[in-house]
Design a protein around this nucleic acid. Structure first.
Length: 224
DNA sequence: AGGAAGATCCGCT
DNA sequence: GCGGATCTTCCTG
């Protein structure tokens, strides 16, 4: 599917500039759909098209790590300049990767939740460790980081120059963008209902429950 | 010093 | 749908 020549081509594409990230966080989140996340690691290159993200909007957002202006060693990167990678470890086993937005001292970020794999699929399978479909490889924030080889050693990395970068690629038209409340933030009170999750409607790589009615209607079997 | 909860995932029912 | 795995971080006493 993906040949070595295609993979090398990713390294030639321009990175998103710092100004891309220095905007309102929900706008950055929405605009990241369709862009390409790349990691050139010692083990090889992996890349995928971003199809699901969530916006976390600073001290007044009760779901954000920076809620109430609480600044700790873990979330320190959120206070830094836009376009940096914020990686944290959660549930004792999963890494989550975020893109810092706005400007210094405004601790906001976009969580990367799912990719459609484009390159390095064998390496992704190796990192995931068991057989699965391509669209499942980077579905969900913990799985995305595992498949892409992203961990805390990359916390604070500059996404415009890094071994980890986000590349220019066509945006997703509004008609194909879905919005919903964020996943796993029930503790955030009323903020749990804010529609700050954005995803590509027709992507099989998006996490969570997806409607099957259309598939059933078409007579397609989705489960054995 | 200790405990509780977490921006999750997977396998089982 | 439910709960266990597993450990970091933060808050309390």
């Amino acid at each position: 599917m993906t040949r070595p020549s295609d993979e090398r081509a990713f390294t030639e594409l321009p990175s998103l500039p710092g100004t891309f990230y220095a905007r309102a966080t929900t706008r950055v989140a929405r605009a990241l759909l369709g862009k390409i996340l790349v990691h050139e690691s010692p083990a090889g290159l992996t890349a995928g098209r971003i199809v699901e993200v969530e916006a976390y909007c600073g001290p007044k957002d009760r779901a954000a790590h920076s809620v109430g202006g609480r600044r700790t060693p873990r979330n320190e990167v959120m206070w830094g300049p836009a376009g940096r990678l914020y990686v944290y470890f959660t549930y004792g086993m999963h890494h989550c990767g975020n893109v810092v937005t706005r400007r210094s001292e405004c601790p906001e970020a976009v969580l990367l939740r799912a990719l459609e794999p484009l390159a390095g699929i064998d390496l992704m399978r190796q990192r995931r460790g068991r057989p699965m479909s391509v669209t499942a490889l980077a579905r969900g924030p913990g799985n995305l980081c595992l498949a892409m080889g992203i961990d805390r050693t990359m916390n604070g990395a500059d996404l415009t120059v890094g071994p980890v970068r986000i590349l220019e690629s066509p945006s997703v038209p509004a008609s194909r963008v879905g919005m919903s409340p964020r996943i796993g933030v029930a503790y955030a009170g009323a903020d749990a209902f804010l529609p700050w999750r954005f995803f590509v409607r027709d992507s099989e790589a998006v996490s969570g429950k997806r409607p099957r009615r259309a598939l059933r209607h078409a007579g397609i079997v989705t489960r054995a």
